[in-house]
Amino acid sequence: MTDATMTEFALPRPRAATADHPVARALLTATAMFFIALFLLLPLITVFAQALKNGVSTALAAIVEPDALSAVKMTLIAAGIAVPLNVVFGLAASWAISKFDFRGKSFLITLIDLPFSVSPVISGLVYVLLFGMMGWFGPWLREHDIKIIFAIPGIVLATMFVTFPFVARELIPLMSDQGRDEEEAATSLGASGLQTFRRVTLPNIKWGLLYGVLLCNARAMGEFGAVSVVSGHIRGQTNTMPLHIEVLYNDYQFVAAFAVASLLALLALVTLTVKTFLEWHYADEIAAVHKH
C-alpha cells in the first residue's frame, strides 16, 4: 500500500488513465468503510468502552495486578519463542517453493496451510493426545518428571502450531511473483547463496516479511482455543493474556476483562504503528526497490 502512496507522492501524477472514476472511488471507499465499521470498529469500540466504563484508573489497576502481569509474561514468552522459529521456517519454505520447481509442490503448500484449517480445539487436543497421561508419551514424561502440557512447553507448542503458516503464507505468493531472475543473475555473477539471499532476496521481500511477522505475532499473542486446552488454567502461572481475560470475565470482573483485552488490542495497534513508522522512514528505499 505504501509504495503506491509513495509513487503518487513522487510523481506529478501523469496517471489519470489508471485512476478510478470519482463516483466509483467514493462508492468503493464508502462500502469498505461501512464494512470495516460494522465488523471491526464497533467490536473494538465495545472493548474500549467497556474497559473504560469505570474510569482509566480502574482499567489500569486491572492491568498491573500480579496475575495479569504474569499472564503478560506468559504471552511474551510464548510469542517470543514461536514467532522467530516460524520466521526461520517461513524463509526456508518460501525459498524452496518459489525458487525451485519440484513435484508435489502444491501438496507441500497445502500441508503448510493445514494448521489454519485445524480447529484450535484440535490443535490443543493433538498435544494432549501426544503428551497427556492417556497419550503416547505421557507416562514416560511423567516418570522422568518432564512437564509439557499444563506447563510452558505445551503453551509454546500450541502457539507454534497455530501460527505456523503465517510467515510462509505471506512470503510464498510474493516471492513466486518476483520470480528468480534477479537471484540467478546474482549467482551467475559469483555471489554465494547466502549473499544472494541477503543482498537480493531479502530487500525484495522485506516488507512482506514484516507483514508476516506482525500477523504471526498478533495471532500468537491472541490465541485462545488451542492454548486453553493445554494450559491447565492455573491462575498466576499458566494463564496467558487471553486466558486471563476469560478468567476475569467469568469472575464478573467485566471491566478488568475488557481492560486486559484492550491492552492486547493496543499492543496490536502499537506494532502497526511501528510498521507504519518504518515504512515512512525507509520510504525512499522501498520506492527504489520497486522501481527496477
Binding site: 471507499t29 498478533a218 491472541g222 490465541e223 485462545f224 481475560i245 475488557f258
Partner: peptide, 29 residues
C-alpha cells in the same frame, strides 16, 4: 483496493484495524 489505491484521512487507522481479528483474543471477540 481502497487501502492500496486511494488516499483519505484516517487510512492508517483503518489499515491497522484490519488486523484486529488476529490481535483480539477470540474469546474477547
Amino acid at each position: 483496493w481502497v487501502l492500496v489505491r486511494y488516499r483519505f484521512p484516517g487510512k492508517r487507522l483503518v489499515d491497522a484495524l484490519v488486523d484486529l481479528p488476529f490481535a483480539l483474543p477470540t474469546a474477547v471477540a
